[in-house]
């Protein structure tokens, strides 16, 4: 009778410690990778969606995040939690995508088309149609306005605000992802809120005048 070396199923991994999961991932264990993806896919997708405000882009970038995890799991050192590391990749990839969009917007062809149709930018047009699926119906319109204003914040403020508000991370978790101290994150979030207040004030003032 042969002894079968079965790969543990996804459910069997539930009680496995992170360090053990890491060892299996670094050995190229497919079941471990599947478990990792299924555990973190929603957190990654939601983070990307919070930044990109586009379902298709969020799905693409979420896949890229896990491809990066798959390729670089060997380089991962346990100085941070696995989920923190994955968040970092998700944030970096999302910001890269936003920068790529902006570059495209600046390029002549897109600029010409954009100005021809009288649009300021493709990103803003996409964002105005975006509705986050996790929002309550009564908040959808307001959230759309808020998302539009979040885009005008600096990258750091935007990152801290998105991670805290959309993904619901604590100050400590945001600090870990952004490799900052908790007071620095508190300060970032305070400034983000103040800027948003000003921007929203201008927005409503302008809309009232119109």
């Amino acid at each position: 009778m042969s002894v079968s070396t079965q790969i543990p199923s996804f459910q069997n991994f539930k009680k496995i410690k992170e360090s053990e999961l890491l060892i299996r991932l670094q050995q190229g264990d497919e079941a471990a990778f599947k478990h990792l993806v299924n555990t973190h896919k929603d957190q990654v997708y939601n983070t990307c969606l919070g930044f990109l405000r586009n379902h298709h882009d969020a799905e693409d970038i979420a896949q890229e995040v896990f491809m990066k995890v798959y390729d670089s799991i060997g380089d991962f050192r346990e100085d941070a939690a696995l989920s923190t590391w994955i968040y970092r990749i998700a944030v970096t990839k999302s910001l890269e995508q936003i920068r790529y969009r902006k570059r495209q917007k600046r390029s002549g062809f897109f600029k010409a088309i954009s100005s021809f149709f009288g649009n300021e930018g493709a990103e803003e047009v996409d964002g105005s149609n975006f509705m986050h699926p996790g929002l309550e119906l009564e908040n959808k319109e307001r959230a759309g306005i808020l998302f539009g204003e979040i885009e005008k914040l600096t990258e750091k403020q935007r990152t801290a605000f998105t991670l805290q508000k959309v993904e619901g991370l604590s100050y400590q978790e945001v600090a870990d992802v952004m490799k900052m101290s908790v007071p620095a994150v508190e300060s970032l979030l305070y400034r983000a809120r103040e800027n948003l207040k000003k921007q929203l004030h201008d927005y409503y003032q302008q809309n009232e005048m119109d």
Partner: peptide
């Protein structure tokens, strides 16, 4: 402004579908 600032307070996490891993 205050109401809009709190529009994301009870936001729920968006979810991918079951075929995410297969596509990946």
């Amino acid at each position: 402004v205050e109401k809009t600032l709190h529009a994301l307070d009870r936001i729920e996490r968006a979810q991918t579908d079951d075929f995410f891993y297969s596509r990946l």
